[in-house]
Amino acid sequence: MKYASASAACALVCVVGAAAQSGTAPEWGQCGGQGWPGPFTCPAGWGCVATNQYYSQCLQGAPASTPPSTPPTSVPGGGSPTTTSSAPSGTATLIPGNSFIRAVEDPNFHKYLQSEVLGTASDAVLGDPSNAAQFQIVSGQLVQEVADGTKLYAVVEGRSDSTVTKLKMSWSASPASGANAGTFMWSGDTVEWSIPTIQRPQLNAWLVCPDTDGNLDVYINLGNYDYQTPAGCADETIHAYTGATATA
């Protein structure tokens, strides 16, 4: 009986594991990459496209791809494995219920969302994992948890006219409100932003544009991802990471 019970338990675990690996990723969600435990397939009409060896994403209209016959080795804590980057890893432990947010494409691979002046109401930038901030999305607001217990709220500048293709994001001590507030949301592990007054081709399209001091300012991309990218900027999608600490 002992051996029969063990066999039954093993069979159940194997079936559950196989089901998890054979599931379907959400639209714009992760579908592959070194260390990704699954799922590997995309919804109908979407294809899994590799951005780099560590990250593949479901993109609308892309050719369908075949999932690997065996999943790659998972990474403790989830997310992508570390690279040989010289950037120091973070030391702050992730607060339960929060997430780090980071880019996964070059040239900003594993740069983390934070304030330009750390922990203050200033421009939203990407920076080293050693300074990674922590976040929640609550009632459509992207909320940064500051070490002293206060909160900062993501605000997006208004669009002055229809020729503007990117909107700068910054942090405020007060929640976003009014006509320019918009709504932040998760799609899988991807951060999206929408607003009724602007029709965006891709809600998860972001831009990172260095300022004159070299800070990696974060913008909402109002156009298509990876198409007609403004000079000096890089297309990005930004994603939750829930490892215990921010990794390079």
Score class of each variant (00 low, 15 high):
L59S: 14
V49Q: 04
Q53S: 12
D106M: 08
T84G: 13
V49K: 08
F100A: 14
P81I: 10
G38H: 06
T51F: 10
S74P: 15
T93C: 07
A50V: 09
V49E: 09
S99E: 10
S65F: 00
P71I: 15
S65P: 00
T70D: 06
G90Q: 07
G77S: 05
C58Q: 07
P107R: 14
S80P: 00
Q60M: 11
S99G: 01
S56A: 09
V49C: 01
A64I: 01
P96W: 01
R102M: 15
G38I: 01
I95K: 15
T70S: 15
S80D: 12
T73R: 06
F40I: 03
A103Y: 13
S69G: 04
A64E: 11
G77N: 11
I101M: 03
T66R: 03
S56M: 07
P88G: 02
P81A: 03
S69M: 14
F40L: 01
G97H: 03
P76G: 10
T70A: 09
P72W: 05
S85R: 02
Y55C: 03
G61N: 12
Q60R: 14
T66P: 02
P72I: 04
S69T: 15
G77E: 08
L59T: 07
P81M: 05
T66Q: 15
T83I: 05
C48D: 01
T84K: 14
E105D: 14
A103D: 14
Y55S: 10
T70N: 06
S99V: 04
A87R: 15
G90I: 03
C58D: 05
P88D: 05
S65A: 14
P37S: 08
S80Y: 01
A62C: 09
P43T: 11
S65N: 05
R102G: 04
V49G: 02
G47R: 09
Y54M: 12
